[in-house]
Structures are given as C-alpha cells and as structure tokens.
Design a protein around this nucleic acid. Structure first.
Length: 961
DNA sequence: CATCTGGAATGATAG
DNA sequence: ACCTATCATTCCAGA
C-alpha cells in the first residue's frame, strides 16, 4: 500500500506483482481493505459513502441541475460517499448516510460476509479476519444499498432520478467514459472509470475512486464533485460533455428542459460543475463502488458486524497517491485496457491465482488499483479500503471479461429460467422500466447445482454483450438494481471496473437458487460511452445484451472457483423490440437435405410478409448459398411462423451441414441467424449425433442456445477436467468466453451452441479449445488457463495452444452456435481453429458438410448485424479487451485463419485505414479484431456478417467517418 | 404520488 | 448538399 500510495506507478507494479506473485499479499490487501473498509467503513464509510453516493447519484448537487433529484436526500450528499457507502453501508445503520442511503438496504446475510469476504473475494486471510465477524454476524446484516446506489450515484449523478433507476451511469457513463479512459479500460470501466478516469489523472483517482476515492470521497465527492475533480472534471467533462453533449446534450436541447440541458442530470453536473461532481463522485463513487462492490459491501457489513476496524482504510489515503499513480497507470491501463490488456499488464503472472483473478477482475482492477491511489479524502475508509479493496477486490476475482465455465466438477451454475428476449432498457433520464422478466412470466431463475456446503454464496450479475465476440461486460448497458415491494430478492450493487454488478445471495436453504427479480437494465448514452478512452465498441445498433451470472465458490484449497453463465440474448431497444423479428424457438433443428418439411418458428414480430432465408456460410462468412423458404402466410402470426424447409443445395452430403436462417421483415429488419442442420438424405441419425456431439464435447451447450447464453462450456469441461476448477477459477480465467451467446438465440437452445460458444468464449484461454467446436476439452487447458489468469496472459498462450485443442474437438459441428464458438477461438485459435477444421473451408463444406456446417453455423445471426453495425457505424469493437489483449500480442496475424482470420484481417485493414483516433482504440481494435475474429469469428455471424462487414468496411467504408 | 410502461416526438446519423 | 430511412434519446401520459 504504502508504496502505492507513494508512488502510483509503483503501485501498479506493485499490484501486479502481487497479483502475479503474491496472491496472498494481494488478497490481503484487498482483503484488508475490504475488510477494513467494511469494518470501518461501516461507520465512516457509511456515512460518507452512503450518503455521498446517493447524493451524488442524485447528483444533486452537482447535479443540481437535476433537481430531480428528487431523490432522496440520499443522493444529496453523498456522492462521494456513495461508494463508501456501499462498503460502509454494510451496516444498516450507516451513520449518516442513512438518509442518503435510503436506498435500499440490503440485508446482508452472514453468508455474504462469509463468502464474499472470505472466500471468494477475500481469500483466506480475509476470511479469517472477516469471517469471524461475519459468521458472527448472523445472518444478516443489513447493508445499505446505498452503496449500490452509490454506484449509481456516480452515475447518478445523474439523474437523477431516482436513485435506483437512474443509475448513474449515464452520466456516469459519460464520466465513465472519461474515466474509462483513464483507466480505461481497464478495469473499470465506466463506472469506475468515472472515478478514475476522469481524469486520467485519475488513474490514481480512478482507483481511488474505486476505493479510496469513493470512500473518501464521501466528502471528496461532494466536493469532489466540485472540486476534486477538477482534473477529473475537466477531462471528464470534456470527455463527457463532448461526448454526451454530443448527442444527448445537443440533441436534447429541448429535452432537458429545464434541466440541464442535456444531459441528463449528470450533465447537469457536468455543466456546471462540471461535472466535477460527477466526476468526482463518479469516480469516487465508482471506485468505491467498484471496490466494494464486489463484496465489499458484504465485507463491510461483516466488518461492521464484527467490529470494525477499519479505519485504517481511511488512512488508506495513500490511495490518493495512488491515484496519481493511476495516472501513470492510465497509460498502463491503456495498454492493458482493452481488457485484456489490463490483464495483460498483469500478466505476469498468473500464478497467483487469487491475485490474478484480481487482476482479471481487475482488468479493470489494475485500474482500480490505480484508482485506489486515488486519494481521496479522507475518510478513512475509503482510502484504506479503497485502496486495497478495490484493487484487490476486483483483482481477486476474475475480471468480468474473462470467460468462465458454467460448471466445474460437481458444480454447475445454471439459468433455470431464461429472461425474455426483449426488455426495454431505461435511460438515466427515464424512470426504471422494471426488472427483467422471464418469457413465461415471473423472473429469471439461476441455480448453483452441486454445492453442498452450508455457507451462502453470492451470485453476481452484470450485463454482458451478446455479440459474436467473447462475452464481456456491455459498455452501453448496466445492470440496474430494482427494489420495492415487488422485489423479493435482496441485492447489492457493486461496481467493478466500470461495470455494475448486482450481488444476490445464494442460500443453501433455497437450494442455491435465486429468483432474479431485482435486475433492470440501464442504457447509457452511446455518446457518453464512446468517448471513453478505451472504448472501442460503438453503441449504435449494439442493443442486445445478456445477463451474466457468476458465482465464486471457495475451495478447500483456499482458492476460489468461479463459474459463469450467460442468459440468452435480450434485445433492449424499444424499436428493435417492436420491429425486428425475433425467433425464440424452432420446431426442429435439423432435417434431411431434401427439405419439404414444415418448421414452426416461435418468436416475435412476424409478419405475413416475413421471409425466411436459409443461408450457408463459408467459414469466412461468405454466403455460399441462400434460399428463401416458403412460408405459410395464412398461418403466420405475430408470434409464430410456419416455413417449409427448402432443399439443401447439395443433396449428396455425407455428413450434417450446418446452415443458418433468419426471418426478414424488410431491409434492415432481420432476425438473428438461427441454426439449422441439414442431414444426409439417408442418414438422419447422423444428424443427431453431430449435435449431440457438440454438446457433449462442449458440454457447453446447445448450439442453438449458443446464442444463448452461456458459454459455459469450455470451462465446464475444462474445469471439470482440471481437477482444480478452482484453480481455474482462481486463476481466473476462465476464459471461456461466452461470446457465443451473443445473440441469437433463439431458439435454440441448443446446448451445442453454448458449448461452442463457451469454448470459444474462453477467450484466450480456454477458448481456444472451446473455440469452436467442441473443443471444450481442450479448454481443459484450464490449467493453463487458470494459470493465465489474466486475459492477456491467457490470450497469448491460449491462442496457440487452445486452438489446436479446440479444433480437434470441434469436429463436430456446431451450427450456429458454432459460429460463436469460433469466435471464441480467440485469436490464435481462431485462426487455428478454422484452419484446423477441414470444414471450415468452404470447399469442404460440401464434403464435410458437417464441417462446413459448423462453420457456417458459425455465422452468427447477429453478428452480421452487429458486425455490420459496427462496420457501418464504423464502430469497432472495442471491448474484447481480453481478447484484444491477446490479440494485441499477436495482432492480426493470428487472425488469418480462414474465415475468421479474414475477418480479422479485414478489421484490421479497416482500422488501419482509419485514422487512429485513439491509439488505444486502434490497439484495441486490433486486438479485438484478432480476438474477435478468433473468438467471435465465431459465430457465424461473425462470419458472414463479419465478412460482410469487413468487406464493406474494406470496401469502403471506413469505420466511421 | 411514484413507478412502470407503452408510445411517440425530436434530433441525430448513415447511406 | 440534400433527402430519406433508421436510430437513439427524451417526453408524455395512462395504468
């Protein structure tokens, strides 16, 4: 710490080292912090944090603009505290913060403390320290949600509005963006970022925010908002404003009406304050939040329970120093940022499991650390905790962009009830639009199977991407905590990196099953996010998300096993939800090449004029074959469509061929690609196998589902395989990227896809294996993976190794899903994978329809769109962080594999062409590309789309311009 | 009165 | 440079 404090840079390094090497150390830090924080925090933190945060959120002050504020007092002041609050909040009481807090409180059950603190998050040490208390604490302590809010707050500032709903993000986002820059990427992202970023400076700050800052903040923030941020503000503002303003603000001229102009509330802050408020707040908040977030709250609570200790944290002040450091970091971060990068930085080791995780988590983490540096005020807490906590905290756990398996050994994290395919997200300027619901009514349900311990665990939830690329936190959407009489599930918000994470208790008494009725989705303004330094993704048309669930299971060895599953894609835009056809289910997944049979599609927005187009994509995404299927208009209904399966172009295939189909309501109104497999005329049976195979192999899941969400796959297998899942966990990595999920979804269910995706997902690591097809096994690499905790690290390694593996396994095909998986292949693999597979090649297709099929499958449905979007928009995929990292390591080259490679290449070229606005961006993009390509390449979508996109891009378009 | 929604107006962008 | 189709974001209003 000291070092850190003293020297930001050092800190960085320091941290890294820890991460790498000193797990324990790291953890401790983290731990301590957290613990401390928690303890201390409680009081102090509370006050400050909680309140602050809220305040911030409300933004009141700064926000003032937004009067809206309505929100409760909470906001009011708190801004800063917000974060702290979180931590502090743990205690119900929260000193003062109370008011602010209003927010909901969360009851923390002991478990929280226990688990989080201990195991998962904190590590043994922590645990020990904490645990006692925790345990003691009985079951529950109430934490103030404030924290949560705080998180928002940052954002909040925004708006305002209400606490909850508004999450702050928007502004935050803006800030974040800014922040992000700083930390850029890394970690944090947005939220934190905000904190951090804002200034770049922030680097330190950033962290600080996270931790200290926030905490400190409490005060700071407030002021911060004002003041502090100066630097931050400026940047942030600039950034923010710039961006936002852009759109929002500008646009809204009117809108705000009174408010501040534009922007949202936040802006408001911005405006004047410049945001400072926000900024500061945000950052702080975020930081704080972030740090906390994880379990910080819990920890805090625990601590509180126990006693407190805490204070130290406050001292953490050093944090600030760190912040400065952060700045340095930033640079670092930048490098890393891209997600992977961060990791990358960390890379060093992977050894340390926890730590690494940390990093991973960090990806942002690093930033966090930086942030930690943040100096904030004082409040004891903050600093102390923040520093460590944040950093550590996040660090300890795998970064959010890491791909993790859904199951390992006896454990399996499963989504029992999937969320509806559509959920209109709310802007900060709007009130909450409620919790995500299940298609059949009710809410999504997640359950951890195989866990027989008596200690409760914490289920984390964040909003992830649903594109072809590896699963990662969505830059334009944040989970929004829903509270109220209609919500039965307690939750806590935390902010990692720039990503809000909702923590829900998984109790043994409930069979480790949680009803997710407390999660809404907040949309951040594209302009705010795109301005972020590290952000490479574009928001336009990037409106699909997935709910990503994670659970960290403490292992006897002291390590923590992390599992993750992603839901089916969820369309979050009002318009898209109303106009785009969506296929949720299909009556059959395969049929002999002769076709002729009627298939019933279930979904939304089907029209009599809807067309169903079957497409066979080459590995590179090219459409080898397209055929419009006959539809029965008379039987067409908004939610169902009957189509006659067209005969396949090649009636002599000897193995199943995967193709895709989509529903088209018009020019730009196409559903995502759905997978379908043509079986050899005579041998239906075979068909099945393929599928099965995939699944099995993958484990992951069905292709169809591929979309869906979960990636699991690889990991699971891997994990499984590896005896030490935990290691994996710890290590982190987990790379299983889910990307698969992306989109589509629909229908499928197919596990296969998932698997694939999963495999794929694993970005680096596992991914390779996953990558494609079945590789999951490979994934097994887990060890490696695990080892590689960091994305970066992973990636590098993974790419190569994995690929092979993946490739091999894959043989089978995954249809659509596959595509995703491919993506997973991340990087190297991707290339490899493609190559590896015979199928992939177009030529092959026929022969090995299967192979091809898979490949084709690869094509994602969405991808195209997405890709296109990106392309069109000029967007670039940023994120990919991890991937990117990997990529970065090996730029485009790897890409080259067949399909994906090309894609990759393409991307590259584009970018190359494009002006590099941001160096970082470029890098990321490249990375991303590489990564994406591999991974995503995934999916078909990618493929086709990608290719297309790419082509387009190549052709002419530039990325944005 | 506050929240949740569905709908839609208003700009902004892309092509 | 202009026009149109699409998107994104903010408002409004009813439940």
């Amino acid at each position: 710490m000291t070092r850190l404090e003293q020297d930001p840079e050092f800190d960085f390094e320091f941290l890294f080292e820890f991460d790498q090497g000193g797990e324990a150390a790291t953890e401790h830090y983290s731990y301590a912090p957290s613990g401390v924080s928690s303890a201390l925090p409680l009081p102090a933190a509370h006050a400050s944090l909680a309140a602050p945060c809220h305040d911030l959120q409300t933004s009141t002050p700064g926000i003032s603009a937004v009067p809206s504020a309505g929100h409760p007092s909470g906001y009011g002041g708190a801004v800063d505290s917000g974060p702290a609050g979180y931590f502090l909040s743990s205690s119900n009481t929260r000193p003062n913060g109370a008011p602010t807090l209003e927010s909901p409180r969360i009851e923390i059950t002991s478990y929280l403390g226990l688990h989080h603190g201990s195991s998962q998050f904190f590590h043994d040490v922590e645990v020990e320290d904490v645990l006692p208390s925790c345990k003691r604490s009985p079951s529950t302590a109430t934490l103030n949600l404030p924290s949560l809010e705080a998180y928002r707050d940052p954002s909040c500032l925004s708006p305002a509005s209400s606490l909850s709903s508004r999450s702050c993000n928007s502004e935050a986002s803006s800030f974040e963006s800014n922040y992000s820059y700083p930390y850029a990427s890394p970690q944090t992202s947005p939220w934190q970022s905000p904190c951090v970023s804002p200034k770049t400076t922030d680097p330190e700050e950033g962290f600080p925010r996270g931790l200290g800052a926030c905490h400190l903040l409490g005060s700071p923030r407030h002021s911060p908002s004002t003041s502090p941020r100066t630097s931050v503000t400026e940047e942030s503002w600039l950034g923010a404003r710039g961006s936002r303003p852009t759109s929002p603000c500008n646009k809204r001229k009117y809108s705000l009406n009174g408010r501040q102009p534009s922007c949202s509330p936040h802006h408001s802050p911005t405006p004047s304050p410049h945001g400072s408020p926000r900024v500061s707040v945000t950052e702080d908040t975020w930081l704080g939040n972030s740090t906390q977030y994880t379990s910080s709250a819990i920890v805090a609570a625990i601590n509180a329970l126990t006693t407190d200790s805490s204070l130290d944290l406050g001292e953490g002040v050093p944090i600030k120093s760190r912040k400065t450091t952060l700045e340095h970091l930033p640079s670092v971060a930048l490098k890393v940022e891209p997600a992977g990068e961060e990791l990358g930085a960390t890379p060093p080791t992977s050894d340390l499991p926890p730590e690494e995780f940390t990093f991973q988590p960090l990806r942002k983490g690093p930033f966090c650390e930086q942030y930690l540096s943040v100096p904030q005020p004082p409040y004891q807490w903050a600093k102390p905790k923040s520093l460590t906590p944040a950093t550590y905290v996040s660090p300890s756990l795998p970064a959010l962009d890491w791909q993790l398996p859904s199951h390992s050994g006896p454990y399996e994290l499963r989504i029992e009830v999937q969320p509806k395919s559509h959920h209109r997200a709310h802007y900060e300027t709007e009130g909450s639009r409620g919790a995500v619901k299940a298609s059949a009514g009710g809410h999504p349900i997640v359950q951890l199977h195989g866990y027989v311990e008596s200690e409760p665990l914490t289920l984390q939830l964040f909003i992830g991407t649903a594109d072809d690329r590896l699963l990662r936190p969505h830059a334009f959407y944040q989970v929004h905590r829903i509270t109220g009489k209609t919500v039965s599930t307690t939750s806590h918000e935390a902010v990692l990196s720039n990503t809000k994470v909702l923590e829900v208790p998984l109790l043994p008494e409930n069979n480790m099953r949680a009803i997710i009725d407390c999660a809404g989705i907040l949309k951040l303004r594209n302009s705010d996010i795109e301005l972020r330094k590290g952000e490479t993704d574009i928001g336009r048309k990037n409106t699909r998300v997935r709910l990503v669930f994670r659970v960290h299971i403490p292992q006897p060895s002291g390590r923590t096993l992390s599992l993750q599953v992603a839901s089916n894609p969820i369309e979050c835009s009002q318009r898209s939800a109303q106009e785009l056809p969506l296929v949720e289910k299909q009556s059959m997944d395969s049929h002999p090449v002769g076709g002729g049979k009627k298939m019933i599609l279930s979904g939304h927005n089907f029209l009599q004029d809807s067309k169903v187009i079957f497409v066979e994509k080459a590995p590179d995404g090219h459409h080898v074959w397209e055929m419009e299927a006959k539809t029965d208009r008379d039987l067409c209904r908004p939610n169902s469509l009957v189509v006659e399966i067209p005969p396949f172009r090649n009636q002599r295939i000897t193995s199943p061929v995967q193709v895709s189909f989509y529903v088209c309501n018009g020019k730009r109104k196409r559903s995502q690609y759905q997978h379908f497999t043509y079986l050899p005329a005579n041998v239906p049976v075979i068909k099945t196998e393929p599928t099965d195979d995939y699944e099995p192999a993958l484990t992951c899941g069905p292709v169809s589902q591929g979309l869906s969400p979960l990636p699991r796959p690889c990991y699971s297998q891997q994990l499984t395989m590896p005896p030490d899942p935990s290691s994996c966990l710890v290590a982190g990595f987990a790379p299983c990227p889910q990307r698969s999920s992306m989109l589509p979804t629909p229908p499928s269910a197919s596990p296969k896809l998932h698997d694939l995706s999963s495999a794929a997902y694993s970005k680096g690591i596992a991914s390779p294996g996953h990558g494609h097809l079945g590789l999951q096994p490979l994934a097994a690499e887990d060890p490696t993976i695990q080892e590689v905790p960091r994305p970066l690290a992973v990636q590098p390694g993974s790419p190569e190794p994995p690929p092979p593996v993946l490739l091999q396994p894959q043989p089978s095909a995954h249809p659509p899903t596959t595509g995703h998986q491919q993506h997973q292949l991340p990087k190297g693999r991707r290339s490899e994978a493609p190559a590896a597979r015979p199928r992939s090649l177009p030529g092959v297709r026929e022969d090995s329809a299967r192979n091809l099929a898979p490949v084709p499958v690869m094509v994602k449905r969405e991808p195209e769109e997405l890709d296109q979007f990106y392309l069109d928009d000029g967007v670039q995929p940023k994120r990919c962080g991890a991937e990117g990292a990997a990529n970065t390591a090996s730029p485009p080259n790897t890409k080259v594999q067949k399909g994906w490679p090309q894609a990759s290449t393409c991307w590259v070229s584009k970018r190359a062409l494009q002006p590099p606005q941001h160096p970082l961006v470029k890098q990321r993009e490249w990375l991303v590309l590489s990564g994406l390509a591999l991974p995503t390449g995934e999916e078909g979508d990618t493929v086709a789309p990608v290719n297309e996109i790419i082509r387009n891009d190549l052709c002419g378009t530039e990325p944005r311009s």
